[in-house]
Amino acid sequence: MSFESFAEFIDMGGHGLYVWLSYAIALIVIVTNIVNPLMHKRQIFIEQASRLRREKPKS
């Protein structure tokens, strides 16, 4: 452990803003890259399911 206390850990030797901002942006980028395709997949499934329902009676 390179920090004595939790407050020191948050402060990061005065650079807290920069360090935490970087990690926050990284988290946002990673989460969007995972959540975005997942939501897209749901949307595709809903669209295709409704398309199949529409086309079924005809055939």
């Binding site: 390179s2 920090f3 850990f9 990061m12 030797g13 005065g14 807290g16 360090v19 990690y23």
Partner: peptide, 13 residues
């Protein structure tokens, strides 16, 4: 974040 040592020049940034 917690265990790696800080750089002697740049500190925790």
């Amino acid at each position: 974040l917690a265990f790696a040592p800080a750089d002697y020049q740049q500190g925790n940034s």
